[in-house]
Amino acid sequence: MKILVCISHVPDTTSRINFSDNNTKFDTSGVQFVINPNDEFCLTRAMWFKEKQGATVHVINVGGPETEPTLRKALAIGADEAIRINTEATDGYSVAKQIAAVAKEGGYDLIIGGRESIDYNGGMVPGMLAKMLNYGFINTCIGLEIDGNTATATREIDGGTETIKTELPLVVGGQKGIVEESDLRIPNMRGIMQARKKPLSVKDPIDANSATQTTKFEEPAPKGDVKLVNTVDELIDLLHNDAKVI
């Protein structure tokens, strides 16, 4: 089984988000970048497929050279090979086109990405990939087993879960649940040493125009001061008469 895990390189969840150049660019100064949390769960699930079912695991990112430490971290966690498509990731549609081009050559049985990235929150790359490759697609996946050519996946739906059986090849949009928080791996010294020797290939992008372009950012309006109340009666009164939410 050949698995490709899509890795988005995103600001750490504790980052404050600021913009530069007249609010047209995300200001990366002082920002720590990490593997997108949803992708980290997916990568760990892929490692289990490697260890228990002999799968080969490649990781891929569309981005500039600055994303390589993130890919190296994925290698240190245990991925066999990394691919970086050397172009700035400007919109989900073009990122999906870039990954689809590589995936077509690679002949992957399973492609796993995150349900969404925590930077642009598009929630679109895995689904688009599935459609471009004509693979099946499971989103909000919280459980995945593969037996031969058959995948059994559990996914989250509003108010419950749904279990689906389908065939490979398949694209999965995963999240916490595909493995648990406590299953996540921190790269150890041996992993980090090995990662230095593992292949990280840089590929030229294909010609793919982006469908959207972000022109401006805005920070949310500052929040007014909290209204502190002393009694429960006062709270109920405010929620009813002021906020009109009960």
């Binding site: 469908a211 022109t215 950012f217």
Partner: peptide
């Protein structure tokens, strides 16, 4: 809304 509600973006669809 982007960056998990930490910001807004204006995006042109082309």
């Amino acid at each position: 809304s982007v960056f998990s509600n930490k910001a807004f973006a204006e995006t042109e669809i082309k």
